[in-house]
């Protein structure tokens, strides 16, 4: 059955300036942005950074709803961050007493700031994947990591693994869905089972999917070798990325917030 909808990588087609950037620029911007996010230490700078992030998102054609959904999916992580600070930070005035645990305003404040930092990071990462096609992402990452080869990091193997993962994740996902449906057709019903039994019943999904993935891996390796692939042997690259002025400008854009965060 043909599936026209590409759900994977959450790539949203578009033609904004961010879509047209070299993937290497976008990938290199990640640690720069991360540095900025963690260097800001007062409220004005934090809000300025937040405004910068939202402006960035707005200028691409990505809907805020999609970004909001990406943030929402990590609500567990965000609540954990807030909770962590709330429970273990005892600075500031006492807010309330919950049983034996005392909660303080300082904790709440720090928790919210930490969560906000995380939100900005998630937003940035989300927009990156929304505006970069998976194959571009893989290639970009491969080229960014290439210099590490001198340090002994097998960056070409990493790129290969990433590429194959990106290629097969949708396929494996489809297969998992099919297997799940097949087991449900045989009466599998997790909801009616106690917790311990549920773990065991998940084997009905995990084992076939794993076995399938292993089978595919062997077949794929054979197919690759048959087409002349040799691990670690030199090979040409058909696609090439070309760095443009706009990519340098984009990176330059990120140096500003860091400088501002660090020195102002």
């Amino acid at each position: 059955m043909k599936r026209q909808r590409m759900i994977f990588g959450r790539y949203i087609a578009g033609d904004s300036w961010m879509h047209r950037l070299d993937p290497r620029a976008k990938i290199l911007a990640v640690p720069l942005f991360m540095a900025a996010v963690f260097l800001v230490d007062d409220y004005t700078k934090l809000l300025a950074l937040l405004a910068f992030t939202l402006l960035l998102v707005k200028s691409t054609s990505i809907s805020l709803l999609a970004v909001a959904r990406a943030v929402k999916s990590l609500w567990l992580l965000l609540s954990f961050i807030v909770l962590f600070h709330l429970l273990f930070d005892s600075s500031g005035a006492q807010l309330m007493q919950v049983g034996a645990v005392a909660l303080y305003t300082g904790g709440l404040e720090r928790g919210i700031v930490a969560a906000l930092r995380m939100v900005m990071f998630i937003v940035f990462a989300a927009v990156l994947t929304f505006t970069t096609q998976p194959d571009q992402l893989a290639q970009g990452l491969g080229e960014v990591l290439a210099p590490l080869r001198r340090l002994g990091v097998r960056s070409d193997r990493l790129t290969l693994m990433l590429g194959i993962a990106l290629r097969f994740v949708p396929t494996l996902f489809d297969e998992a869905q099919r297997i799940w449906k097949a087991q449900v057709s045989r009466g599998l019903d997790l909801r009616s089972q106690p917790l311990q039994k549920r773990a065991r019943l998940l084997a009905a999904l995990l084992i076939p999917v794993t076995a399938g993935a292993l089978r595919r891996a062997v077949a794929l390796a054979e197919a690759m070798e048959a087409r002349g692939y040799r691990l670690d042997a030199p090979r040409t690259r058909y696609r090439s990325l070309s760095w443009q002025l706009r990519d340098s400008c984009f990176l330059g854009l990120f140096v500003l917030p860091i400088a501002a965060a660090a020195w102002l």
């Binding site: 297969e175 099919r178 297997i179 449906k181 097949a182 087991q183 057709s185 084997a203 009905a204 084992i207 076939p208 076995a211 399938g212």
Partner: peptide, 12 residues
């Protein structure tokens, strides 16, 4: 009873 295509994939 529904038997999917390539049902042997579901044996576990």
């Amino acid at each position: 009873g529904l038997v999917f295509q390539y049902p042997e994939q579901q044996l576990f």
